[in-house]
Design a protein around this nucleic acid. Structure first.
Length: 257
DNA sequence: ATGGTTGCAACGCAA
């Protein structure tokens, strides 16, 4: 493999965003694209649209909420849709191998607010993810974790840190859980290549947040140490967020060579 | 910046 281009995009309904995704694939030609919030039951997944563009697909969906998919140029094997020991009816996890690289596509729970039961669910979910990652790192050298983490890892990833201080997506326990992933053996590709740049991947639909650049960087691509060495680029493509009827997230891309 | 918008699907829930 000379070059491997991988991207993540929370599309907030694949039914609505399929034209954007098709157009983006044609223009950007990634080897792998991980999607979150497809909001589609598996029976309704637009398999043919991706085959027509020369891509294989695997997906784990549900009606109305959540749903993840991996779009890949090459065949995928060893597909898993759940974190062991985490009984979760919500479809948020998709693991697959593409060649010798393990891909883990995540739609981490949002948490709603730090007072919410959903926040407890988020932290428990992240704890089980940590256990799973430790186990997988013992078996595999090359792992990429990517998706909507619903965590802004530091104040550098927040347009207005004072307004967000202590709130969900920015709270200390969430940031600790993210930091733990780096400690066990992953690197944040965007931060590795752009140590001080303020780039966001999500902007609220309300109050013209995108036009005002009131955003957060909550969509991430993490690479295991063995792979991170070969990451030559990682960038956020703001283009799709500026289209008519956009997702509230925009794609994040990483290149390995 | 404590209101506001989007998607789903049904007039509320999740983000």
């Amino acid at each position: 493999m000379s070059q491997f281009k991988i991207a993540t995009w929370n599309v907030n309904s694949l039914r609505v965003r399929l034209p954007h995704v098709e157009d983006w694939l044609k223009r950007n030609q990634p080897d792998v694209l991980a999607l979150q919030e497809t909001k589609l039951p598996d029976a309704d997944f637009p398999i043919e649209a991706f085959h027509a563009l020369g891509y294989e697909v695997v997906f784990s969906g549900q009606r109305t909420y959540n749903g993840v998919a991996i779009i890949s140029r090459g065949k995928m094997t060893d597909v898993m849709t759940d974190i062991p020991l985490l009984q979760d009816p919500q479809r948020r996890v998709l693991w697959a191998m593409a060649g010798d690289i393990c891909i883990l596509n995540l739609y981490v729970p949002n948490g709603e607010s730090v007072e919410s039961e959903k926040y407890k669910y988020k932290l428990n979910w992240l704890h089980h993810l940590d256990l799973f990652l430790r186990a997988q790192l013992k078996k595999h050298q090359k792992i990429i974790i990517l998706g909507d983490f619903n965590i802004a890892p530091s104040d550098l990833e927040v347009h207005d840190p004072k307004r967000w201080a202590g709130h969900v997506l920015c709270s200390a326990p969430e940031r600790k859980a993210f930091q733990e992933m780096l400690v066990v053996g992953f690197e944040d590709c965007y931060r590795k290549l752009s140590p001080t740049e303020k780039g966001y991947s999500w902007w609220d639909y309300r109050l013209n947040a995108f036009q005002r650049n009131w955003g957060l960087r909550i969509d991430h691509i993490l690479a295991s140490s063995a792979l991170a060495k070969s990451c030559t680029a990682c960038f956020i493509d703001k283009g799709p967020r500026a289209l008519e009827r956009p997702s509230d997230h925009t794609p994040v891309v990483a290149v390995f060579e």
